[in-house]
Design a protein around this nucleic acid. Structure first.
Lengths: 160, 160
DNA sequence: ACAACTGCTTGCAAATTGCATACAGAAGGG
DNA sequence: CCCTTCTGTATGCAATTTGCAAGCAGTTGT
């Protein structure tokens, strides 16, 4: 029932998997904003995603193994959405997207702060970030460095 | 008449600019395959792009300053499509997409060879590649190193 | 002279998107 | 326990986008 891929090119397959206007937005919000619930993603969406689109993308991403769900012990109706290893390894891709967008699109200064920090931090920072995400989403040991804190503080310093 | 952006986030803006299923395919073919004409892009497309979609994407990319056109002195009907500096700077993004796709999608081995080489080559190789693209598309001095040759030879060695 | 090729358009059906609304079960405050 | 709010979705429906086949006027090579 699954439609065949257009080609076996890795760039094409990445595009077929994530190349629409919403999937990476959802992943970005889970990753950088630590939004773990449906309503959280829906209401705090900077871009205003529609509820049916969000539901559709979450289901597709879970089906593809790019997100995982678990019941929330504190609320029987809530589903916790977590990143998986493949999605955590999107950090370099998202960092490059931020770096490119910062230079070649009319991105606002406040929203570019984190992209700039992540770009200047380089591979070392990306690895630290991925380690932190593994601890948050996969339950591994928490690392010493918190890249999320660094990014958040830089953003707040620039805004406030 | 231009529709407003959903947000000023650099990741979102990159997605709004390039986040559809064909734009980056076209750029990839121009960049790695050195396809400079419409028919060239249409007929040798690994993924089988439709003619109207290709025409639409080329126009949009030119309008956005991501591609440039020039008349072909050898053929009055031909238009030469060239990368511009913003598109050349997509090399790191495409390299990361190839690296991710190679690991987490069912990419074929032959088509992954170049992605692997580009990933292992790292920033130095990407910079050399961008210098080469500037010479091919912007008319700057040709560099000593030809990354395109390296990639092509590796691909041919793996296939033949 | 004529077939093949140039970039690109045009109809039209099918799929996707966006928006508003609805909903059944669960939680929280009185 | 009652009632409002919150949970993650689903459902119509209109608008946009996609995909496919065919066509087209001018240009080139034989």
């Amino acid at each position: 029932m699954d439609k065949p891929f257009r080609s076996g090119c890795p760039i094409n397959l990445t595009l077929e998997t994530l190349g629409d206007r919403w999937s990476l937005i959802v992943i970005r919000d889970i990753m950088f904003g630590n939004r773990r619930h449906y309503r959280d993603l829906l209401n705090h969406s900077e871009e205003g995603i529609a509820s049916n689109i969000l539901a559709d993308r979450l289901r597709k991403l879970v089906d593809a193994g790019l997100l995982a769900t678990s019941p929330d012990p504190k609320h029987k109706q809530k589903t916790i959405y977590s990143l998986t290893e493949p999605t955590i390894r999107l950090v370099p891709l998202l960092a490059e997207m931020g770096a490119w967008g910062r230079r070649f699109t009319p991105a606002t200064r406040e929203l570019s702060i984190r992209a700039q920090l992540l770009e200047e931090g380089g591979r070392d920072m990306w690895e630290a970030f991925m380690a932190e995400l593994r601890s948050l989403h996969l339950g591994t040991e928490p690392p010493e460095r918190s890249v999320i804190n660094e990014l958040t503080e830089a953003y707040l310093a620039a805004v406030g």
